[in-house]
């Protein structure tokens, strides 16, 4: 008896499935037709990368090599250098978007909030070299998702302001004084 019941159940299940699919066949598709329709993407969606600037309008990136180290496909390369005023910056900064998998790990690793992924994903083209972005292509004129953060204000090295003038710092030790 059980076998027959099972059989019946099985067959109904199959028929039910067939009915369901048949029903949907008559439905209107829900697909959005890109590129005729472009859905506005959330700010945190991950596509083409930019290098942002801090509130003073300076390049945020200090070329610390953390993003290039964390990148699982090794598509970031750069050379750090020292600006005349002592600021560390990338002399060149290259991202190969032909390799990037838009995982966002670089953004997560970045201590200065410089590197950020943006919702702009439309990069396909016929020349693969066009997917290799240099610093000129990456650098933007705003702070991206955060317009306040200024790494050098917290770093504890003399860059924006002298030693002892930054957030949560005492005045420099006076070597000539014997007071405790």
């Amino acid at each position: 008896m059980g076998t027959i019941k099972n059989l019946a159940e099985g067959i109904t299940a199959l028929l039910k499935g067939l009915a369901t699919t048949l029903k949907i066949l008559s439905r209107k598709p829900v697909t959005e037709q890109y590129p005729e329709y472009r859905r506005p993407l959330p700010a945190r969606s991950r596509a083409v990368i930019v290098l942002t600037r801090d509130p003073d309008g300076e390049e945020r990136c200090v070329a610390c090599y953390l993003c290039s180290a964390v990148c699982p496909v090794s598509c970031i390369s750069m050379q750090s250098a020292e600006r005349e005023d002592g600021r560390r910056y990338p002399r060149w900064f290259r991202i190969n978007f032909a390799r990037c998998i838009y995982c966002g790990l670089c953004e997560e690793a970045c201590p200065t909030l410089a590197i950020q992924l943006t919702p702009n994903f439309e990069t396909s083209g016929r020349d693969i070299l066009k997917l290799v972005y240099e610093k000129e292509d990456l650098l933007v004129n705003h702070g991206g998702k955060n317009n306040e953060y200024n790494f050098y204000k917290r770093a504890g090295v003399a860059m924006v302001g002298d030693k002892g003038t930054q957030i949560n710092e005492d005045k420099p030790v006076d070597l000539k004084s014997n007071l405790p």
Partner: peptide, 10 residues
């Protein structure tokens, strides 16, 4: 086409 429609696609 049919598979698409059955999955509410085009």
């Amino acid at each position: 086409k049919l598979l698409g429609r059955i999955q509410a696609r085009y």
